[in-house]
Design a protein around this nucleic acid. Structure first.
Lengths: 207, 207
DNA sequence: GTAGTCATGTAAGAGGTTACATGATTAG
DNA sequence: CTAATCATGTAACCTCTTACATGACTAC
């Protein structure tokens, strides 16, 4: 159900077509809740069926048409309710941590590769999140501007504050994973050094 | 597919029945990769079909029977391959961060409730992870003992090192989320204080 | 005897992934 | 005219969730 509210959140800033929504998604809410276009189009239809959005068919060129979706009052209400309602935490599931738990089964160089991948992955994520954070802090994001234009000025600081808080959380998370991967890489170096100092042990391992 | 390898990892320590596996799960690998019993039993059958485990039917009391699963050589090999292979990162999905992103739509007290829930949740998780970490550091965990008994002594430090690394990652993650939730709660206090100082603003918001 | 634990599943459904499929419009 | 972009989906499959279902064993 989260996809529905991620989409609704975008539509609460301005009306748009499914295509535009798909485009915005990846740069904004998609950094918190990813979704593919094959998911988004059908969901928009369901939201329309449930009265959360209303679609207007607008001509596009000579022959084609596109559907522009606009959030309804019911949709705004549903979004507000969702945001205000505590959601149960999903079961813990982290493949990469599970993998490292049994790292002794891999060779040290394979384990090193896993942690290097982890480091690279979260470095990229950190970059994406902190980039968005910057554009929000300076209110350079077009969609955010539209949102601010549509709300009373007294609310502006709150709107910015919550978005910054969320993104700072993501950046901190990335930093944490980066630090962890480095710690792991250091650990592997130490394990390797310890082995190099004990030729008997190395002989044992080769058996 | 991760469920399969989480189960295989447990079975690589010692043979057990589906029921025992289910019990161990929640206290060990389940803290990294959660799974329900309704998932585990069918998966064990599929693993048997694929030759990763072999089941032996052992009598239980007079009339009943139970199936004890033992990892095969093929199973050990599959597990080692899985641990050594980098796994693509799943799409980012964090409902709670998404929710806070639009926190301005909720009231401040509702937003506070969300962050309090976050704090409580990760406090519990932190406790679970650090408890397991302690029992591992002191090698008090029975299953881990069995695992160590079944491996050459030179490998023992590695086995412990990787498990500690993984759990320390989880603990650090929990600490990070706890700190974030506290920062959020402080932010809400500040927003509230700022409003209290501006009676005009409060009047505006009441309209 | 009865409550708690041991033991093992099935079945319907939700949500997400991957691959496939199609065609108009516009900028160069 | 051709490539990129705009635009909108369907279908098969996989994984996980939730609810249901059953019954033997054991300690009291």
């Amino acid at each position: 159900m989260s996809l529905r509210y991620a989409a609704l959140a975008l539509l609460s800033a301005q009306p748009m077509t499914g295509y535009e929504l798909v485009r915005y998604f990846d740069d904004t809410v998609g950094l918190m809740w990813a979704a593919s276009d094959s998911q988004i189009y059908p969901e928009l239809r369901r939201m329309e069926r449930d009265g959360l959005v209303r679609a207007k068919t607008v001509p596009r060129g000579e022959r084609a048409a596109k559907r522009q979706y606009k959030i309804t009052a019911k949709g705004r209400e549903a979004l507000r309710t969702w945001v205000s309602t505590p959601i149960p935490y999903p079961p813990q599931r982290d493949v990469h941590r599970l993998q490292i738990t049994y790292g002794e089964l891999a060779g040290l160089s394979e384990a090193r590769a896993l942690l290097t991948q982890h480091l690279d992955h979260y470095t990229l994520r950190r970059h994406q999140w902190s980039t968005l954070l910057d554009t929000i802090k300076t209110a350079r994001f077009p969609l955010l501007r539209r949102r601010l234009e549509g709300t009373p000025p007294e609310m502006h600081s709150r709107i910015l504050a919550f978005k910054e808080l969320a993104l700072e959380g993501q950046v901190a998370h990335a930093d944490n994973e980066i630090a962890w991967a480095r710690r792991g890489l250091k650990l592997i170096d130490e394990l390797e050094a310890a082995e190099a100092e004990e030729p008997d042990l190395r002989a044992d391992l080769r058996e």
